[in-house]
Structures are given as C-alpha cells and as structure tokens.
Amino acid sequence: MTMLFIIASLEALLAVIALAELGLEISLAAFGAILLLYLWVSTHDVKGRYTHLQRSEVPWLYDGIAEMARKAGLAMPKIYILDDYIPTAYSFKDTIVLSLGLFEVLDREEILAVAAHELGHIKNGDTKMFPLIAYGRYLMMVFTAVLIILTRDTAVSLASLTLLGLYEVVRANFHKEREFAADETALRLLETPMSLKRALEELKYYEDLRVGVKSSTLPSIEPTIDRNKRQKVQIIETHPSYDERIFRILVEMHGNNMFNNRVQ
C-alpha cells in the first residue's frame, strides 16, 4: 500500500516538475475529482438486482455470518443477494454480496466459507483500501495521458509510463496477497475450515466447465455463459488462481507436515 502511495506521489511530482504551475493545478484538480467520486460512492447505496437479506429469509446464513463477524470482532455486515445465476461473491464497505448462483452449486457450509472470505476482506481493511487503490490507478492513468500530451517530452513520457507500469505490477501483487490474507482470515473464522477448500474446488470446476468446455469430460456440454462477455481481459492478473488459493489453504492447514508426509 505504501509503495503504491509512493509511486502515485512520484507521478504527481513528475507532473509538477514537468508542467510547473499547470502541473500543480492538474494534480489538485485530479485529487479533488477523485475525492468527490470517493465521497459520492461512499454515501450511495447499491441499486439494481440486489436484495437486502433479512434474517427471517435465510436464518442459517444470517446467523452463520453473524457468528463469524462476532469472532472477527466486526459489527454485523449488510448482506445483499444478487440476482445472478453465475456463482460470485464480493464485498465493499461493510457489505457482503452473494449471488443466487452460489446457492445452486454450493452447500451451506461452502456458502458460509465464501462469506467468511468476504468477511476476511472487511476485517483486513481491504474494502476500504481497494477503492483507494482503484482511484489511484485512475489518477495514474490521467497523469500519464496528460504528461504525454502536454509535455511531448520523450523522457517525461517514458518516466510516467514506467511509473504507471510499476503501479500496475505492485497493485496486482498487492491484490493477490490480500486475497490470500482473506482466505487465511476465513480459515480462522470457519467452524469447518475445509469447507473453504471444497467451495473453491467447486467454483474452479464451474469455471473450468465453462471455459474448457471443448476438452471437458462431458463432450455434450457447451455452455456459452455470457460471463465471457462481461469480463474484461486482464493484462496483469490481480486475482490468484483457484489452484494457488487451494494450495495455500492446504499449506495453512497442514503446515510443513504436508511436505514431510510427501517425502516419507
């Protein structure tokens, strides 16, 4: 996080040095715009295909999350159910979103494991940090474009592009580490930690079936689920693969014994 802040500050400094007063004005305007965006987003609630879950609707889920929140020392988060048949979950502020698709492919313990991972993000402060990092990314992009267009100086353009590239790499690594950290927190919150591994395995199976359908063991299945269209192609992966996460969970749960057993 500190590293990202340093890179963004260097980019702003570069703008001030290269463009003098205009650079300072652009920097201040950009920070102001981002601040306004942050305030607007943080004061507006979600709209659309979300349903705010009440305890009476799914008591086992509500109580399960309440118990884990208590263990984590957090206030009860808001739970939203998303009308989407693709299994997915995410969190922002003090809110956990679970798609209806999750309820079709996972059992209760596994759904709670997915919720525990999202609680992990809240507990670890990721839901506050991730938006800041995203805004920082927009700032970096704006500054780089402005510097290239206004200075028309090769050295300045190269320097700003390098800083942008550096920001992207550090951001991707940071996101990956936070995903692993959320899994680790989830393992401590869950009554049955293995349910997180099972959930990830099932979600991986779902993804594989969707993506690698031609080489699937079920030759007749050709799901053309429109998630492909929804997802942008990432140049730098910000999320670890399911396999990486499952491996880390096994290491976390078994420690070095796993490797010792294998050697024996």
Binding site: E104, E202, L209, P223
Partner: peptide, 12 residues
C-alpha cells in the same frame, strides 16, 4: 455429476 454441471446446463 456435480451441482455445477446441472446449474450450467439448466441455464443453457
């Protein structure tokens, strides 16, 4: 057969 397969096929 897994739940995921059924979910994918029914949405298909």
């Amino acid at each position: 057969i897994r739940r995921s397969t059924i979910s994918i096929l029914m949405n298909r």
